[in-house]
């Protein structure tokens, strides 16, 4: 080989297209990160001063636009309440479905494929359609029929209520739990299942004693992701349980409730004086953002912890 040929291997020549292409895609990435940063900085900067203990812990009077007396305690409690009730429904159903899909079903069977397609579709249904479903099914069908049977047709369940909002959200977040659980079930080495079965364990015993303990971090992550998604959603609860204002905290499943996300919407669009409500609006947004992000971080921490524990001992 002669000397000039080797020279081609050196990359000291400026390659315009390479520079242009990496630059453009890099800029796109930077721009997206910029958006994220802009939203976070904007919310924190404007919301920080309003975020006082008084604000977080007080129950507002009728006029919650008044910056001096207002608070968001009922909204925090309402959001937490609806999300907890949702979890009680969605986790068992989601986990059992994932167990069926990975442990029992054969991948080639038609029913499995239909279930998977349904899960995929459920994940893509617009949140407002879930709201309509909650109204049409839970309130107008289930609730009204419950009233006819149990309460002599007086309206107890056949109206917007916390339980209906929670159930609607449970249907909405079902795919999140299923997908996360399925992922963690698939990550368990098949050798463990074989070992248990070869010792004469039944399938159920194997799932209960070996598979599920191993999948716990994945299940928890799925649950927390579902919670964090549901906590920020407003559209599905609009017609199924949220209240513009309530003087008392929700205590029963048939109560309506106030909600952080909905409160953000109300403050930003229904305020009589936009400039005056801006500080409390931003403070409320900050509370909502902290809650949803904190949940995400908690998910990460729990996952790491449970994994460490599992590694060490049963």
């Amino acid at each position: 080989m002669n000397a000039p040929a080797t020279k081609h291997f050196r990359t000291d020549k400026f390659d315009f297209w390479s520079f242009f292409f990496s630059g453009l895609t890099g800029l796109a990435t930077l721009f997206i990160l910029g958006i994220l940063a802009a939203i976070l900085v904007n919310v924190i900067y404007n919301g920080w001063n309003g975020l006082t203990w008084h604000f977080v812990s007080s129950i507002p009077k009728k006029d919650f636009f008044d910056a001096k007396t207002t608070g968001v305690l009922p909204m925090i409690i309402g959001t937490a309440f609806r999300v907890i009730v949702m979890t009680i429904f969605v986790i068992p159903v989601g986990v059992i479905t994932a167990v069926y899909l990975t442990e029992y079903a054969s991948n080639i069977s038609i029913i499995t494929r239909i279930i998977r397609a349904a899960v995929n579709n459920l994940a893509g249904v617009p949140s407002i359609v879930f709201g309509l479903f909650g109204l049409g099914f839970f309130i107008n069908f289930v609730g009204k029929n419950m009233d006819n049977l149990l309460h002599n047709s007086s309206a107890v369940w056949g109206q917007p209520a916390l339980i209906w909002a929670s159930l609607t959200l449970a249907v909405m977040t079902l795919p999140v739990v299923i997908v996360a659980t399925e992922e963690s079930l698939k990550a368990i080495p098949p050798g463990l299942r074989e070992a248990s079965l070869a010792l004469g364990a039944t399938k159920l015993e194997t799932i209960w004693r070996i598979v599920l303990p191993q999948a716990l971090p994945g299940i928890m992550t799925g649950g927390i992701l579902a919670v964090s998604r549901a906590a920020g959603e407003v559209a599905p609860i609009l017609f199924t349980g949220v209240a513009y204002f309530m003087a008392s905290l929700p205590g029963r499943l048939s109560d309506q409730f106030m909600d952080l996300g909905y409160h953000v919407f109300v403050l930003s669009t229904q305020s009589p004086n936009i400039e005056q409500t801006r500080p409390i609006l931003y403070a409320t947004v900050l509370v909502l953002l902290i809650l949803t992000f904190a949940l995400n971080i908690v998910a990460v921490i729990i996952r790491a912890r449970v994994r460490k524990k599992l590694r060490a001992q049963s």
Partner: peptide
Amino acid sequence: MLSGIPSVVVGVF
């Protein structure tokens, strides 16, 4: 993380 931001928050922004 951007997908973790509730849509009402994006709306306010």
